[in-house]
Amino acid sequence: MMGTIFGIPPQALFGQLLLGLINGSFYALLSLGLAVIFGMLNVINFAHGALYMMGAFVAWLMLTQLGIGYWWALLLSPLIVGLFGVVLEKTLLSRLYKLDHLYGLLLTFGLALIVEGAFRHQYGVSGQPYPIPDALKGGQNLGFMFLPNYRGWVVVASLVVCISTWIAIEKTKLGAYLRAATENPVLVQAFGINVPRMITLTYAFGVALAGLAGVLAAPIYQVSPLMGSNLIIVVFAVVVIGGMGSILGAVLTGYGLGLLEGLTKVFYPEASNIVVFVIMVVVLMIKPAGLFGRER
């Protein structure tokens, strides 16, 4: 026996930290999309949770209606959600860029309610089961816990996506255009770059990330119309804590808060669904722009 840490056996603590990391992976993926969209478009995309849910439902529909399996869904579902994003941006969001943030927020909030309502009407709230793909069934006994292979895959997939997105935006030429276009769209357009199209594609990319998170989540949670609204408020808190628009901040805060929530579930489970908001309040009081944000 190795003794205990604050009355908790270390094995249990490791287990909970690992689970926190898994949940943090979803927070990171979703808040990354939100941060990209806010950074480039200045839109607070409240429809993010609904699009995450849509990603999961598209995967489920492909499996049950067309017999298309998990791996293809992982590719196709984000594409379909991304296309839906293009339509949204072209027809609705693009009209609001000249107005205050609040209008974008209200529009996307309304869209989220409509999308969720439509799915709820069609499929009820109990959700639909989505099986874990055969290649990822089973799990590893790590000594301190049983880690399902699928959860391990989620952590890896999310890390890869988050890091490559960060590199693409911070280190590549395309990313430089994007960042320049946010600072001064008129000037960038004068250099012959199609800024409106770039904005559309950025939005599509951001929501495709939400769709991807949805597919990753499908085998873990029930594919349910409510799955987005259950998660999105926490994800917004993550973005606020990390600093609106800061990509690195969103990712790091996503993982960090996942870990912290995991710890809360050990020491005081009743508070596990508010701990994120307590931290949000504290951060807003001390550093209103968020941990990684810049004052504008």
Binding site: Q11, A12, L19, Y221, N230, K265, P269, N273
Partner: peptide, 20 residues
């Protein structure tokens, strides 16, 4: 026993405590 908040999305942490 462990008290989980209503409408919890992820029970794995509580399940782990049950396992332990």
């Amino acid at each position: 026993s462990v008290k989980a908040p209503l409408n919890t999305a992820d029970f794995s942490s509580f399940l782990l405590q049950a396992q332990a």
